[in-house]
């Protein structure tokens, strides 16, 4: 089952490598990973998605909690949550395809953020499923380059992850 694990950790050199190393060492997979400092500069917020059974995710969260730099963490998929991923996609946009590509981007509430005579760069934000759906909606041959940020997320409501 797909899990989103959100980790609040010390913003220190080497902390990220400990998280990554733990996943490699214990044979857990990482599907996506995103990390950046929070409003408190001493803390980083790391979000990762992984495919794991209930038993595995219990071990993953326990092992992550053992890392000295990990302050707190939550498995967002355990409760109601919001998740978003950002995708930048460079597509061929020539001839009749040019208008069609714009229409499809509009339907997905994407924005064209860079334009040349032959290409658009489209910015899309949404759940990973939505981004996948966009990729399926456009001709495969038109895709020149894709970059995705990995998933970020928060719990719904007033619940927060804090020190």
């Amino acid at each position: 089952m797909r899990r989103i694990i959100s980790v609040l950790m010390e913003n220190e050199a080497g902390a990220l490598s400990r998280v990554i190393g733990l996943f490699a060492q214990r044979n857990y997979n990482i599907e996506t990973l995103t990390v950046a400092p929070t409003e408190d500069e001493t803390l980083s917020r790391l979000t990762l998605t992984t495919f794991a059974s209930d038993e595995q995710v219990e071990q993953i969260t326990k092992q992550l909690n053992k890392l000295i730099e990990v302050v707190k963490l939550v498995d967002l998929t355990e409760g109601d949550h919001i998740e978003r991923e950002l995708m930048l996609i460079k597509v061929k946009a020539t001839g009749a395809q040019r208008a069609e590509m714009k229409r499809t981007a509009d339907i997905f509430r994407g924005q064209i953020i860079d334009v040349t005579q032959n290409a658009y760069t489209i910015q899309l934000a949404g759940t990973s499923d939505k981004l996948d759906a966009f990729l399926r909606a456009i001709p495969e041959a038109s895709v020149m380059e894709v970059v995705r940020s990995g998933v970020s997320g928060l719990s719904r409501g007033e619940k927060v992850l804090s020190t």
Binding site: A13, G14, S17, R18, G21, Q25, I68
Partner: peptide, 14 residues
């Protein structure tokens, strides 16, 4: 050393 010992320490400092 921090990297090479990472999987076998409780914690490490540079």
């Amino acid at each position: 050393m921090v990297g090479i010992s990472r999987p076998v320490v409780k914690h490490s400092f540079l």
